[in-house]
Design a protein around this nucleic acid. Structure first.
Length: 230
DNA sequence: GCGACAG
DNA sequence: ATCTTGTCGC
């Protein structure tokens, strides 16, 4: 496990953080399909917090995309770098997530984030931000619709409905299990929305949430419990 | 101005 | 995100 501190120059105010987003958003690449599902590596990243102790732990878990077997994993801990503000989640998660990704012993391939990419007030959520900063293909799979609207997808697994910001499709509500609440998929960087949904389905053979985020969630919680950062 | 709001 | 017990069901 590695230890990280908040990067020099990291935004302190909400206004500064929004300015950073506006400066980076133009670098998001949307015209690549991304890797085909079931090939290469797929990596889940997630973060857990202990605001009492001011500690944050991140985990990255690399899976073989064909078998969903764990290929590699890593964790990182640090201090909380930003408060939770809707629309600015990336500034809270990215430093530790970058450290965890950097500690991996193999290439991550496609990165699956817990949250949104383009489905964001300024079209630059966590998944897009992480993609631009690393250059890696990324997608966002969120558990809640945030401020966006959607119709309920059909009952069968695989059914979708557009996730809308007004009349703009910023993502998709995707049913990953029959009759179970859908997840909300959006493009991060260098992946198409169709492909992002296909990957999400490939990663949900048994549970609502992708195996990537399930593994990363369990690992970062464990890392937080065991963190001795005092 | 007020409320809602990924994790 | 996090605080939290038991409980119903495959």
């Amino acid at each position: 496990m590695t230890t990280v501190s908040t990067p020099a120059g990291w935004p302190v105010t909400e206004e500064a953080a929004r300015a950073v987003q506006d400066g980076l958003r133009t670098r998001v690449v949307l015209d690549e399909p991304g890797p085909p599902p079931g090939t290469g590596h797929v990596t889940g990243v997630d973060v857990a917090y202990d605001d009492e102790r001011d500690v944050v732990a991140a985990a990255a878990v690399v899976l073989d995309a064909a078998t969903l077997d764990v290929v590699a994993e890593s964790t990182a801990v640090g201090r909380v770098s930003f408060p939770y503000v809707p629309g600015l989640l990336a500034f809270r998660e990215i430093p530790t997530v970058l450290a965890a990704l950097g500690a991996l012993s193999c290439p991550p391939g496609l990165v699956v984030c817990d949250g949104y990419g383009l489905a964001h007030p300024r079209r630059f959520g966590l998944a897009s931000h992480l993609g631009v900063v690393t250059g890696l293909p990324t997608i966002g799979v969120a558990k809640n619709p945030f401020t966006f609207t959607h119709d309920d997808p059909g009952t069968p697994r695989g059914s979708t409905s557009p996730l809308l910001a007004g009349d703009e499709e910023v993502g998709r509500a995707l049913r990953t299990r029959d009759a179970v609440k859908p997840v909300f998929v959006s493009v991060g960087h260098r992946v198409s929305l169709d492909n992002a949904c296909a990957h999400t389905l490939a990663l949900t053979p048994a549970y609502r949430l992708p195996e990537t985020t399930r593994r990363a969630d369990a690992l970062c919680r464990r890392a937080l419990r065991e963190a001795a950062l005092l």
